[in-house]
Amino acid sequence: MTEVALLQPVMRDDLVIPEAVVSARDVSLVFDAGGQRVTALSGVDLTIAAGAFVSLIGPSGCGKTTFLRAIADLERPSSGQLLVNGMTPAEARRRRAYGYVFQAPALYPWRNVARNVMLPLEIMGLPRAERRARAARYLGLVGLGDFARKFPWQLSGGMQQRVSIARALAFEPKLLLMDEPFGALDEITRDGLNLHLHELWRRTGMTVVFVTHSIPEAVFLSTRIVVMSARPGRVVEIIENDLPATRDLDLRETSAFLAVAHRVREALRAGHSYD
């Protein structure tokens, strides 16, 4: 008993810093794919502070999506400690701590746009009037207020993805997890949505974890860029992005922007040279 008491001060190290929204300690994840063991994540250490916009970038197979899914309790780490808001991911999920935006819009084609946005609110049991008000508010926020009664398949790909962002925002989570949300869109649409997302993040003060394989996108959006490498998936470098807080598309032509992009590219190359 006394020993345990004596050890306590030492263990303070492990205590969760309150403002850490996500904290990962030595997180590893091994898939068992038909008898073959595939190491998707190996010893990932990462702390994400409240209000940050963190991008995970790396080649395909580097485990960036797996890590995001582990935060969302869609995958379970094989070892290590992963906490979301100081809770296990499963607890956080049960408390609906985060909104998730997938690679594809994953809208339900039999529901119109407004009812798609209301879907999580129905599941969480919000009253009807509140559901309507929120759908209107967040569709307005992503600039789709006039499309509430359209069906998903009547919208372009970019608009569909904006609906799915509105759906993730509708239950007002403090944490937004985004898995290559603009990966399937053309570059022009993508630029517009990047700007839109940046302004959304600045206005709401949410924490965003953003998976991408586009360097300009990561540099434009993030406060921190986590560079990962493949086989096994691990963190190579964490780059603090000190570009000004308010950004527009012209920023991408500046030397400061290109310098950060260069650092990211160097880190990606370094990660590659391991194999």
Binding site: D73, R94, F102
Partner: peptide, 21 residues
Amino acid sequence: DPLQLDLMRTYDARAMQVFSL
């Protein structure tokens, strides 16, 4: 598809809700 099912999981939807919705 798996994404639509994952979405339900992120909402912590009950089995009945996954079925009916």
